[in-house]
């Protein structure tokens, strides 16, 4: 007797039952389960892929925009700086001009003052000379009143003063 006879005995009735049952199971599951499920999974996979692609594109765009923004900001900054520098230079120039002008004005004023002073000095000297001459005459008149007439006195004083002014 074969020990495992029962295990190996062919049962074609069971084979037919199994074949029919399994094919029926496959048909039902295939139509109502695997079909919708795999379709849904593919849709989801596609959805996820699309979202990722879109995200990547959006990221690229955002990066590009950011780069643009950065560039624009840099340019603006550079512009502002150049403007600022120009303004500063202008101000500097203006200030220098102003200083120069003031200095010139002061110099002119100093010059004028000097001339004025010179003239005043000359006129003062003239006046002094006249006064001294007059005083000298008066003094000499008093001293020499008796010895010299007026013309002689004047000549003597003039000679004296002539030698004096030339020094």
């Amino acid at each position: 007797m074969i020990v495992a006879q029962n295990l190996l005995a062919p049962n074609w009735g069971l084979f037919v039952w199994m074949l029919v049952s399994f094919l029926a199971l496959m048909a039902v599951l295939g139509k109502y389960a695997w079909g919708p499920i795999t379709k849904a999974l593919e849709e989801r996979e596609k959805g996820i892929q699309d979202s990722m692609d879109q995200a990547r594109v959006a990221l690229e765009e955002a990066k590009a925009i950011q780069a643009d923004n950065t560039k624009a900001r840099r340019e603006a900054e550079a512009g502002a700086q150049a403007f600022l520098r120009a303004a500063r230079e202008d101000a500097e120039k203006l200030r220098n001009n102003e200083v120069e002008k003031t200095r010139e004005q002061i110099q002119t004023m100093q010059e004028q003052a000097r001339i004025e002073i010179e003239r005043e000095k000359d006129s003062a000297l003239d006046a002094l000379r006249h006064q001294v001459a007059d005083m000298a005459i008066v003094a000499a008149e008093k001293i020499l009143h008796e010895t010299l007439d007026a013309d002689r006195q004047k000549k003597v004083v003039k000679d004296f003063l002539g030698g004096f002014s030339q020094n």
Partner: peptide, 11 residues
């Protein structure tokens, strides 16, 4: 059937 038909319905 009891497991996968309801699953398909969820999808």
């Amino acid at each position: 059937l009891a497991a996968f038909l309801p699953l398909a319905a969820r999808y």
